[in-house]
Amino acid sequence: MFLPVTPVLTLAATLIIMLAANSQQNSNAPSTQTPPVVAPTPNASPTQTIAKQTSSAATAWKIDDTHSMGLFRVQHFGAGMFWGRFDGVTGTISTSGTPMETLALNVVIDTNSVSSANKDLDSHLRSPDFFSVKEFPEMSFVSTSSKKLEGNTWSVNGNLTMHGVTKPITVNMEMTGQSESARGNKIGFEAVFTIDRSEFGMTYGIEKNAIGKSVRIIVALEATSS
């Protein structure tokens, strides 16, 4: 049977070019933030499946300063609990593993964003009696290691720098949620921990028991994958 050679070659060449172009496009496409779900094959052992799942690369998240905040609670004159907050929370989070195994944080808080809903009190909190914002405009937490605990919680070791003093602390972090939306992939964490502010050179009011030494801190973070 006679086949017209030119049209067949043209069609074949077109198909090859299209396939090559498609292949090139796939290789240039950015990797998706959500790691691909690895379905266990009938031949694959459970160990092999886990090995495949945990080998995925780290995901970088940028802290959304609009939806993140730091709260602190301290006792006033040995009686009531006084609450204050920081709005300027920025930084990055890095997660790795599927399901998530390790957590790395670099959180920076703008001390000038301290707020207590009282103008006079805010001035006092910004003064050298407390945060000394002119001298120390930022405080930070940089993680050094993390360990997965039960459920969605991690024990994160790191260095907290506040009032010019850096101290190692351990923070328990809970992942409050993760979602995919039109605004990107989002993840939420919450950490609750307590520090002794005198260890950071912030001693005002302790001697007179006017303001407690122990400060409970709650940091709520929402981050978007970059």
Binding site: S127, D129, Y204
Partner: peptide, 17 residues
């Protein structure tokens, strides 16, 4: 005269000064 810087420091929230 020295009351002035003291009061101003207090009003600025700098009690230690």
């Amino acid at each position: 005269a020295l009351i002035a810087p003291s009061v101003l420091a207090m009003l600025s929230g700098f009690a230690k000064l």
